[in-house]
Design a binder for these strands. Structure first.
Length: 276
DNA sequence: CCCCAGGCACAGC
DNA sequence: GCTGTGCATGGG
């Protein structure tokens, strides 16, 4: 929930420890709480929560498949249990249009300001927002990207949902036709909004991590390396590396696996036995 | 006051 | 195709 994925921008802490998070969905507040035996949340939202947390992913199996070296082993142990999330296509696009050359705290503030009643403003409406209203959000030069992209998506000129039927490479090329969308934003949108797990978003932290730990520098080298090493699960590898890099290579504190649970077998138990 | 941030568009090679 | 630079603004 605080790993730089869309929930980091769209959900809020509902307790002091960070064991519970909330968001309004369809006008109603939903709270998801991590308890000793699993997650607790209103059963009526089971399908929503299961989709968000990709409950169908076998985390133990995935961890085994991407555990190719000592660095990944360390990341997998330290952030044991961290899942990729599946978010709305439009809200994910908006989130990462806001993200370029920014920081997580500010991205969150921007995205929250683009929400009404817990949901990101629809593209048709965002396209028509008076510039005076949009300007209040202080998006900087990203404001134009957002408005123009909203126009293209809202009018149907750009078929956002149609990207689902393209493979990763085709979808990435297509997404980059939107203003403000380059390789990195496209990868984030495809990974977190479309569930295309072969995407490997390359930001400054991943750049540092890949250079220091794997000796690969250029974006092209990084893409090839990631694709070759982690293939269809590159997105999972990237998420763990991103957290490890922020934890070990920078000042930002990343939330880790609770003490005593490092290296514990990763399972889906916490999600499967969760609803009440 | 400084440097940096989940990059991109564009100009110039 | 590759490389350098400006960008609006706030976080730390």
């Amino acid at each position: 929930m605080e790993s730089g994925q869309p929930p980091h921008f769209l959900w809020s802490r509902a307790d002091a420890q960070g064991n519970a998070y909330s968001r309004k969905i369809g006008g109603k507040e939903i709270v998801v709480e991590q308890k000793a035996g699993g997650l607790r949340f209103d059963k009526r939202y089971a399908s929503h929560v299961n989709a968000l947390l990709r409950a169908g992913d076998d985390l133990g199996k995935i961890a085994g498949q991407i555990n190719t070296d000592a660095v990944m082993a360390r990341a997998l142990a330290r952030f044991a249990g961290m899942r990729l999330t599946k978010n709305g296509e439009w809200e994910t696009l908006v989130s990462y249009l806001c993200s370029q050359n920014s920081n997580i705290a500010r991205i969150r503030a921007n995205v929250q300001a683009l929400c009404r009643n817990g949901s990101v403003i629809a593209p048709e409406e965002m396209a028509q927002m008076p510039s005076s209203e949009l300007a209040k959000i202080n998006l900087g030069y990203r404001e134009g990207y957002l408005r123009e992209s909203a126009k293209m998506v809202g009018s149907g000129e750009f078929d956002l949902m149609g990207l689902h039927k393209l493979d990763y490479g085709e979808a990435a090329d297509e997404l980059q036709k939107l203003p403000g969308v380059g390789p990195k934003v496209a990868d984030c949108v495809l990974l977190y909004g479309f569930g295309k797990l072969s995407a490997f978003p390359h930001d400054v932290w991943i750049g540092r991590a890949m250079g220091k730990w794997y000796g690969v520098r250029t974006q092209k080298q990084v893409r090839e390396f990631a694709s070759q090493r982690w293939g269809p699960l590159a997105g999972y590898a990237q998420q763990y590396l991103f957290m490890l890099a922020r934890s070990e290579l920078g000042g930002t504190k990343a939330r880790e696996c609770p003490p005593g649970e490092e290296g514990k077998e990763q399972t889906n138990r916490h999600i499967r036995e969760s609803t009440h």
